[in-house]
Design a protein around this nucleic acid. Sequence first.
DNA 1: AAAAAAG
Length: 488
Amino acid sequence: MAVPYGAVPEAAGSPAPDPDIAHHMNFADLGLSDELLQAVEAAGYTEPTPIQAQAIPQVHMMKDLIAIAQTGTGKTASFVLPMIDILAAGRRRARMPRSLILAPTRELAMQVAENFEKYGVNHDLKMALLIGGVQMGDQVKALDEGVDVLIATPGRLMDLFERGKILLTGCELLVIDEADRMLDMGFIPDIESICEKLPTNRQTLLFSATMPGPIKKLADRFLTNPKYIEVARPATANINIAQFKVKVTPRKKREALRQLLRTDDVHTAIVFANRKTTVRDLNKSLKRHGFATGEIHGDMDQSSRMAELALFKSGEINILVASDVAARGLDVKGVSHVFNFDTPWHPDDYVHRIGRTGRAGAKGRAFTFVTPEDAEAIANVEKLTGIEIPVFEFADGDGKEQESDKAPAESKPVADKPKRSRSRKSESKSDDTPRAGERAEPKAKAEAKPRREARKPRRTEPAQEAAQPGKPGEWNGPIPDFLNISAG
DNA sequence: AAAAAAG
């Protein structure tokens, strides 16, 4: 039986909501208005996820709520939907927003805003998206005209407040999204100060993937008699994600990545690196090698971040090289692969990163490059997830990458390749410089879009069978033959 | 060890 999206195979120790209840429920059973139901249907949804089934009625009843849920569980709709109905029953006033949603990153705030637009099409509601990195003018204008909902990152909200552009005294509904991430990012003092500016007579919803002490304290202080619901477990419990470790030396990482990108039927991939500089360099490198890539990290200006994300979502590029700004919550449909170019330092980040794939019931693969220095970090990941990740070894040594790099044949005549005459110096950092034939290709568009051709890499079938990891994830696809089974 | 968020 298929596990319902967002449900938990074994919800150890939690008050285990009967999955059948959520499973057979319909959005119409949740007390949403007809206009809202139409919008939900138009968006293509029929059945609420477990978090939606549990949270929506509570929010409707104006209860405070603590929800333990990962992104990708339908969490956003679980507060956006009932909020729309609540807000529909009132009138907006200039500079006095009626509700506020706080999110830790600009991208997450934008995603919430997109949800509001999608589900609010049949309502006359105004929103303002208050995030940094963009001009204040439009935001101030929207505030002056009056908004029903404010969607904000803490920094810009505080900034505008201090400039006297916002009154929060009319804000009777507050949502704190990704509270644990807010904690990680040092936003708790800001959150506290914002909470104090809101009327005490209000409804507060707090969403968090985990409940560390400071978040508990925050909830005790600012929520009143909250309902507590808990649904999803970490993304590792997602049986749709097949996980692999790839043992590789630092200087072979890029080559290993390129080979995987070419041969593992990669449709859409996010490649995570630990440092912004690595993200930049890796993106440039992949572009030079003809891949359709983009990058996203916090040193980019906001318009570039948005542009890259738009390219990725539209499919113009199918590989996004990212820092951990994209690790959490980012919801892009159809990401087939996550590559951890660097093993993340914190095991939590691993869980969030790989959770970008295997979404909405789709199958996904997560490859994590592990160098000898990463031994401790990956051990922590396995300790946290309780899963021993199958390990493979990148068959390096010869560096003859072109052998597994044939498509498209005409654009890369092997015979035309000059002897590699570059100095060892240019080679020394990593085996990254493209062959002369590759470099000559302008943009190498043909190769850059392997998925357009639904490229099926040739695979040597029977020999692969032994390499099938039986777990986790019940994934039975063959693994690329340049990876060797490693003893560990 | 990094990254994120106000500028």
